[in-house]
Design a protein around this nucleic acid. Structure first.
Length: 422
RNA sequence: GGAGACGUGGCAGAGUGGUCGAAUGCGCUAGUUUCGAAAACUAGUAUGUGGGAAACCGCAUCGGAGGUUCGAAUCCUCCCGUCUCCGCCA
């Protein structure tokens, strides 16, 4: 959510930003509704002032005089009720419109419609070459009994999967290494809820517009698609101590995604699944653009470093306007080389939001001048499993169908090769 | 799942229909005092919003939403949360 004052003063800027993001929003209507809101508020304030004044008079009045004033007050009250009713209606539309106003993308965000228009800003490593015909991870993992997709679908339905044996070992090794790598950067480790109430989804910007992408329980909670939701909700409605900024978290959680509207996409394997696990980096910092930019680069670099530890070829893209979410100012995706598809696939997403989320979540702090401010928030994937396994397994496959264990993972896997002779 | 108690400012804690945005204490900030500090004393110390150059003034907020009343922190309803006991489960 943006500040209504800011919206009023920068209507054209916001319209241009929305256009860049390919998001439809009616700013003119919002301003008209806000005009109305202000008028009714002023009218009500005046009436309430009179009510307060006269209520105080009533205390000291006696008998007939008192009865007379009380009767007059009843008329005033009727007028107020009418104005309150109008305000209520206006506020319903006002709230609804406010939630649709997107954050303004950064100048450096490339123009474009979809992920196809994202701009490569970095490329690391050589695309893996094989002197044999490389297999895809489904074939490799199934052959080595590291995963079972058929029974996954039988038990869990479409996109269901079981990890087994060395598959579990490898996933666990990735978590261990992630804990060591990211945990060594001063982040507070957290294990966060996935079953989360509506407020935190509204606050982070996943609701109200993303209802169809979320699983919902019969008790009204939703299953989070990322640990970001609970981690950001952690400080909801609180005033933070700026001395401790930047607050840095490394959150682990199961993640659930309905993938509504993606039915034809990535129907095989571990690229797109309904449930997975993710380590997520979350940052709250001072409300300064430069600070956000600095933290954004840091978060993204942390993940790049991790991929470099695994020695997997990747590139980093700056997401184009059309590929940005409602609240995002700028986003980098890190994409890993997937040999079977001969393309890079997204593994990580690092975004910053300025105060878009904290304003919705009502997370504040007091700056050095003593003013209440909404801090800036950022988040970035640290590492998701099992998707990361796709790139590890396909890039590290050997001619005999076994998988070489990336050096950095060997201590955690406990062997150097998966499958075949040990 | 059953029964009960409770939710007030940064914290503790008063307040059960009127002058209460809220006593008191602690904390915090500034000043006096001091060579300096402590102590003591004095003053200040919530947030949002509208108006105003400012001083300041209006309105709203006592877990959240609604209701009763001329008037609600206080009464009523629902929701959320915390605690205690019982039951159930791990």
């Amino acid at each position: 959510m943006l500040d209504i004052h800011f919206i009023r003063e920068n209507a054209e800027l916001i319209k241009a930003g929305a256009a860049k993001k390919k998001i439809e929003v009616d700013i003119d209507r919002l301003i008209a509704v806000d005009d109305e809101r202000r008028l009714i508020r002023q009218e009500l304030d005046t009436k309430r002032a009179e009510q307060n004044r006269r209520s105080n008079e009533i205390q000291v009045l006696k008998d007939a005089e008192r009865e007379k004033v009380i009767e007059q007050m009843q008329h005033l009250k009727a007028g107020m009720a009418e104005a309150e009713e109008r305000l209520k209606e206006v506020m319903v539309e006002w709230q609804k419109l406010m939630l649709t106003v997107p954050n303004i993308p950064d100048m450096s965000v490339p123009d474009g419609e979809s992920d196809a228009d994202n701009l490569e800003v970095k490329r690391w490593g050589e695309q893996t070459k094989f002197d044999f015909e490389p297999k895809d991870h489904v074939e490799l993992m199934t052959a080595l009994d590291m995963a079972d997709f058929e029974r996954g679908a039988k038990v869990a339905g479409f996109r269901g999967y079981f990890l087994k044996g060395d598959g579990v070992l490898l996933a666990n090794a990735v978590w261990q290494l992630a804990l060591k790598h990211f945990g060594g950067k001063g982040m507070t480790l957290m294990s966060v809820p996935s079953l989360v109430r509506r407020e935190a989804f509204m606050g982070t910007g996943y609701l109200p517009q993303g209802e169809e992408d979320l699983y919902k329980t019969q008790d009204g909670e939703y299953l989070a698609g990322t640990g970001e939701v609970a981690t950001m909700g952690y400080y909801m409605n609180e005033t933070l101590d700026a001395e401790k900024f930047p607050l840095k978290f490394l959150s682990f959680s199961p993640c659930f995604r309905r993938e509504a509207g993606a039915h034809g996409k990535d129907v095989r394997g571990l690229i797109r699944v309904h449930e997975f696990f993710k380590w997520e980096q979350v940052v709250l910092c001072k409300a300064e653009h430069d600070e956000s930019v600095k933290m954004h680069e840091w978060l993204n670099r942390n993940t790049e470093e991790f991929i470099e530890l695994l020695n997997i070829p990747y590139h980093t893209v700056a997401n184009c306007g059309g590929d940005l979410g409602l609240g995002q100012v700028k986003k980098y995706d890190i994409e890993l080389w997937v040999p079977a598809e001969k393309t890079y696939r997204e593994i990580s997403s690092a975004s910053y939001f300025h105060d878009f989320q904290t304003r919705r979540l009502n997370i504040r702090y007091r700056d050095t001048e003593g003013n209440m401010r909404f801090p800036h928030s950022l988040n970035s994937t640290a590492i998701p499993t099992p998707r990361i396994l796709v790139s590890i397994i396909e890039n590290y496959q050997q001619a005999d169908g076994t998988i070489k264990v990336p050096e950095a993972l060997v201590p955690y896997v406990g062997k150097t090769v998966l499958g075949g002779a040990r």
